[in-house]
Amino acid sequence: MMQVLSIKSGATTKEQCLSSGKLMILTGPSGVGKGTLMRTLLQRHPELYYSVSATTRAPRSGESDGINYYFVSRTRFEQLVANGEFLEWAEFAGNYYGTPRQPVLEKVNSGKTVLLEIELDGARQVRTSFPQAISIFILPPSLGELEKRIRSRNQDSEDAIARRLILAQDEIKAADEFDIQIVNDDFETALCSLEKAIFG
């Protein structure tokens, strides 16, 4: 498991001057529909490279290791952080999430468009290392609709839902930091806006 993270690598000046490919950052509050947008986008455009993140959270129903996430223990994750093997990492809702550095650098340098679906703290880290990255924030039409979507997943306790909604309010305040903002009200409209942001 997690073999792609076996290479030790620290930050290099290469990260500051990547030019052959394109790096796209996608973020937004939990439940806003980032995952669904991403899956549909990749089905339509298989030439895009989706960077699989590592996480310490347990797999959800239907998720596969190495496809949706690399599922690792907290101890292993902390070892990877210490070895400098993440492009970015953050703690979210009690779990760690991180982007393996090496695959992203290799794909961007080979001319690929790389998509990162990450949390706000991680997005800020990547934008610091890659100021030329295009950052996209997905917004819900309202907090009420966001709560409805989170509840419809049937994956969180009441306490977890409350924490996610409080966090979402803070995250939404940061939307202006991003290059592009897309409201996921109508799915097809949001998807078309996302395609335009990536290919336009």
Rank of each mutant, 00 (worst) to 15 (best):
F86I: 00
P140I: 07
L116S: 00
L191R: 05
D156N: 09
Q102H: 14
E63I: 08
E106C: 06
S152I: 03
S135Y: 07
E106R: 14
R124T: 11
K107H: 15
N184F: 01
R74Y: 14
S129A: 14
Y97K: 00
L116N: 02
V81I: 11
L80C: 05
E188K: 11
S110L: 14
S64L: 14
L146W: 06
S73H: 14
F92S: 14
V108L: 10
A174R: 07
L146R: 05
K112V: 13
E91F: 06
Q102L: 14
L194N: 00
L165V: 13
A168T: 04
G62Y: 05
I172V: 12
S152H: 07
I150W: 11
P103K: 02
L143I: 13
Q102V: 15
F71R: 03
D185Q: 11
L165P: 09
I67L: 15
D179C: 11
G122T: 06
A174L: 13
E106W: 06
T99A: 10
L191W: 07
A160D: 12
F71M: 06
L120W: 08
L105C: 05
I161Y: 04
P141F: 03
Q125R: 09
E158F: 10
Q132P: 10
D159Y: 15
E106N: 15
N184P: 01
T75Y: 10
D179R: 11
R149S: 13
S157Y: 08
D186G: 08
E195M: 06
E177R: 07
F178D: 06
L87Y: 01
Y96E: 03
A133N: 01
R153E: 08
I136M: 02
Q169R: 13
L194K: 02
L146S: 08
L146N: 05
R149K: 13
A90M: 08
E158S: 13
L194Y: 00
A168G: 05
A133P: 01
F130I: 06
E195K: 03
N109A: 10
I166Y: 15
A123Y: 01
A175H: 08
E177C: 08
K107I: 03
P100F: 02
P141T: 04
I182Y: 03
D185V: 07
N95T: 10
Q181S: 10
S129C: 11
V114N: 02
G66H: 09
Y70S: 04
L139N: 09
D185H: 12
R101M: 02
R164C: 07
T189G: 10
Q125W: 04
Y69I: 00
T113P: 03
L139T: 06
C192N: 15
V72L: 15
E188M: 13
I180H: 05
S157M: 08
R164H: 10
P140N: 15
E63V: 08
E85A: 15
P141W: 01
V104S: 04
D65P: 05
L105V: 07
E171C: 05
E171A: 07
L105S: 03
V81S: 00
I180L: 09
Q102C: 13
R127G: 05
D185P: 04
S129N: 14
A168R: 00
R153G: 10
R164P: 03
G122Y: 04
L191H: 09
F92K: 12
E171K: 01
V126S: 04
S61Q: 15
R74F: 11
